[in-house]
């Protein structure tokens, strides 16, 4: 279902999700062309989690994502060129090239920190929520993490402490393990957890939980909004699990474009999708599901969506030019920013 938002907002949300998709498809091409910028993770197939989740928050709320952070940074309005420059290690990057794809952040946009350590941001986000409560701010903090983080002790320690202190935090678990190959089968690692239901782990310390289909933007939006209302009302943390299937290009250890760029027409002409990804585009891609929902609700025409697509792709090309034309930082910059500037 579509999120409970005004039509114009629903179109803005689409534009932002599409930006994430187009930016990352281009990133995969850049990686293939070289030079290498190291290991990276893409958010393709999860846009309908992060972007609607951000739409359910206020701009004053804070969000702490992981190494799979591009969707959150772009979703919050980070400049696509400066994010790409960061991923390429350029001086004009969001963090001057010090963070790269794994640690890109934008404190000015309410993303103070991202961590590439599994479970790393869970207690940090809860601590930010504690600060919000102590300072008497009407502010919510969100920890974003994958299902693998539920294997870490930091998750349980934080759920317990956050439940005891009733801090205004939402734990957003992006479970992208449905259909994942797993390390044992030579694919990207998938979580290995004895609990049949991840929500049970959060329930064990009394947290309210919601499990939603991560391809359903409206369901994600509603669960996050409910969590935010609870947090602002002083009722403490909420655990939200959003489940998606792994995008086939994310199954190998290095992201690929197994069948080229996503075409919006696959949403209404599934027979035109490449056979390898036909099932994924038809049933598992939240972005194309959202396209179908917009069209079904007569909120946009195919032509209008195509126009947005060409605008987004032009913006991405501009970002690529900005980032590739940007210079690397001067060597001396390696020694800066070890401590806070006084």
């Amino acid at each position: 279902m579509l999120p409970d938002l005004a039509p114009a907002e629903l179109i803005s949300l689409f534009r932002r999700m599409l930006l994430v998709r187009r930016w990352e498809e281009r990133l995969i091409q850049l990686a293939a062309e070289g030079p290498s910028f190291g290991h990276y993770h893409v958010y393709i197939g999860q846009e309908t989690i992060g972007v609607p989740a951000l739409w359910a928050l206020r701009s004053t709320d804070v969000v702490f994502p992981t190494h799979r952070n591009h969707g959150y940074l772009l979703g919050r309005g980070a400049d696509p060129g400066r994010l790409l420059a960061e991923v390429l290690g350029k001086a004009t990057g969001l963090n001057g090239g010090k963070g790269g794809t794994l640690h890109a952040s934008a404190p000015e946009l309410g993303i103070p920190h991202t961590s590439a350590i599994v479970g790393g941001v869970i207690p940090i986000a809860a601590g930010a929520a504690l600060a919000a409560r102590i300072k008497g701010r009407d502010q919510v903090s969100v920890a974003v993490f994958g299902d693998g983080a539920m294997e870490e002790g930091a998750a349980f320690e934080t759920f317990n402490t956050a439940a005891l202190w009733r801090v205004p935090v939402i734990f957003l678990c992006e479970n992208n393990t449905r259909d994942a190959l797993g390390a044992a089968a030579g694919g990207y690692p998938a979580s290995i957890i004895a609990a049949a239901d991840l929500c049970d782990i959060a329930r064990s310390v009394g947290l309210p939980t919601a499990a939603v289909d991560g391809t359903d933007a409206g369901a994600v939006f509603a669960a996050m909004r409910q969590g935010a209302v609870r947090a602002r009302g002083g009722d403490g943390p909420t655990f939200v699990e959003a489940v998606v299937s792994r995008w086939p290009g994310s199954s190998p250890l290095w992201p690929e474009l197994p069948a080229g760029r996503t075409e919006l027409r696959y949403a209404w002409a599934p027979q035109e999708a490449p056979e390898r990804l036909a099932l994924w585009y038809a049933e598992r891609d939240g972005l194309l599901r959202y396209v179908r929902e917009l069209l079904d609700a007569s909120l946009a025409t195919r032509e209008e969506l195509a126009r947005i697509d060409s605008e987004v792709r032009a913006a991405v090309e501009q970002a690529v030019r900005f980032a590739t034309d940007s210079a690397y930082p001067p060597a001396d910059a390696a020694y800066d920013n070890v401590f806070a500037s006084s």
Binding site: A128, L130, A131, K135, S141, E157, N160, T161, W165
Partner: peptide, 22 residues
């Protein structure tokens, strides 16, 4: 605040609180 015996979490809480104004 008296935290549970959860050094990993409560050190992280301190970091997050410091990132958000305390």
């Amino acid at each position: 605040l008296d935290p549970p015996t959860a050094e990993l979490a409560f050190c992280g809480f301190g970091i997050g609180a410091a990132m958000n104004g305390l």
